[in-house]
Design a protein around this nucleic acid. Structure first.
Ligand SMILES: NC(=O)c1ccc[n+]([C@@H]2O[C@H](COP(=O)([O-])OP(=O)(O)OC[C@H]3O[C@@H](n4cnc5c(N)ncnc54)[C@H](O)[C@@H]3O)[C@@H](O)[C@H]2O)c1
Ligand SMILES: NC(=O)c1ccc[n+]([C@@H]2O[C@H](COP(=O)([O-])OP(=O)(O)OC[C@H]3O[C@@H](n4cnc5c(N)ncnc54)[C@H](O)[C@@H]3O)[C@@H](O)[C@H]2O)c1
Lengths: 228, 228
DNA sequence: CTCACTTTGTGCATGGGTTCACAAACGTCT
DNA sequence: AGACGTTTGTGAACCCATGCACAAAGTGAG
């Protein structure tokens, strides 16, 4: 109970997904000069129940003080550590079209542990162009770049048609974390993580709920509506 | 008795989140001229277990034929109907910076039930500029536009600082579905749906798992990792 | 020191989601 | 028609996540 070398215990996925939001809110509080927060306050700020917040935080150790709350700086640091943001992660973006440009110029990259080390696009018209100080190269250059500054996270922003081939190229040079913006399901070997972000999916989920609401509010048939 | 258009019973959220992917895959199959699929085949194509697929589909009715499978066209239509894509949804995008431009020119919009009816940005330099045939206007014009062609889904692509104010403006004109790309937690009245998409969060989740993998692979030496 | 008060950390119950396994339903072939 | 192989739809078991409620642990006042 003295030391805690066993913090590497499994943190539930649902908790991991919320940690970035906690961290962001804590950072904002720190900027505002807040030194300490209770679970109630922090939970309200991120929009979760306080019990959930406390349980989430308990998975990474015991960094609160009973009767007082959590020290903002300390907690932010511990979450950063748990997420692996104390080291920084070299990122490559493949596909520098509309979305790729927007992603590359996204300030959120640099702020926390992520560093763009490569921008790739097979369009000759884009080759050589610089975005945020990084040159765009053909994907064929990836293996060479990989030696100089090895990429650990790959971002795919190509059309869906090219996504699997791009993914294979990334995996071939040892990338094991991939963020895919193309509307395609990627097949990857064991040990490679893929997360997909899709605008269209999100809109469709919103449409579903909107339809449900309009059915509930609109004309009759109240039987099937459970208003919840 | 066989026809049940009112299977509007609650479809689990987890199922709703997967329906768009099923639909997308079915559309691709239809383009390839495939007429019928089994749950096993379709599940493999989208990367889920076949039992999960069948259970998901069972929530919207019984559209399969035992011993045969599902007719691609029919199933696609039923999923579209369940998601509410048979009607089309007027969308407005607020914040036409890098990301807003990329979103507006995203082809996935038009293809399926969504239609951009408004683009808004308070930067005077952007006012009047057209993207995909739609003019960019100041957000103050929203109420006026709302009368002509009422928006049902609002997309926020402004800096985080402006997100809550923009959200309030959208809610004020009756928008009850919001897709938020800004890294901010939005406060909305009861009955308004908000979904957030955040690149930074996704990267941090990937970093967590990457760190986990490197710890597992890099064997022992837990002391230095923990203390660092 | 003791008491009163605050807030954390967590055991436990509850509910949803996922997976398994199988009977029911269909087409086909003889 | 009846037997056979295939695939759906679903009951049931398991697993994870959420929320409640409270004891433990701290602060501060008297
Ligand atoms: N734009 C959006 O808002 C948005 C939203 C969600 C998803 N998406 C998806 O993201 C992807 C990119 O969208 P976009 O609007 O930027 O498209 P885009 O056409 O503007 O850009 C695609 C880029 O990828 C490059 N490319 C194509 N094949 C390549 C390959 N094999 N190797 C390297 N580069 C290659 C092209 O040269 C082009 O520059 C698409 O799959 C799209 O569906 C876009
Ligand atoms: N670019 C990305 O890849 C990316 C990824 C994830 C999240 N985001 C987030 O999306 C948002 C937009 O990113 P971006 O790169 O396009 O930024 P940007 O600065 O290029 O664009 C922001 C736009 O919003 C407009 N705007 C600001 N306040 C406004 C208001 N009150 N009303 C109407 N318009 C207003 C600005 O004029 C500007 O054109 C940011 O919050 C960013 O953090 C961006």
């Amino acid at each position: 109970m003295s030391a805690d070398p066993n913090l590497r215990r499994e943190i539930p996925d649902a908790t991991v997904a919320r940690l970035p939001e906690y961290l962001r809110t804590l950072s904002r509080l720190a900027e505002d000069g807040v030194l300490s927060v209770s679970s109630e306050e922090l939970a309200a700020a991120v929009g979760v129940r306080s019990a959930q917040l406390r349980k989430d935080l308990s998975h990474l150790g015991s960094y609160g003080v009973r009767g007082v709350g959590y020290e903002v700086e300390t907690l932010a640091l511990e979450i950063s550590r748990a997420l692996g943001l104390t080291e920084d992660w070299p990122v490559a973006i493949v596909g520098m079209g509309n979305l790729g440009h927007a992603l590359a110029s996204y300030s959120g990259f640099v702020t926390k542990g992520f560093r763009i080390v490569g921008l790739f696009d097979d369009d000759p018209a884009l080759a050589g162009q610089h975005v945020v100080g990084v040159p765009i190269r053909p994907l064929a250059d990836l293996p060479a770049c990989q030696v100089a500054d090895p990429v650990s996270i790959g971002v795919i922003a190509t059309p869906a048609r090219a996504a699997q081939a791009v993914c294979d190229s990334l995996v071939a040079v040892g990338v094991t974390s991939i963020l895919n913006f193309a509307p395609a399901v990627l097949t990857v070997p064991e040990g490679v993580d893929v997360r997909r972000v899709d605008l269209s999916t999100e809109l469709q989920i919103l449409a579903f709920h909107a339809q449900r609401k309009s059915l509930a509010a609109g004309d009759g048939d109240l039987r099937s509506v459970v208003s919840q």
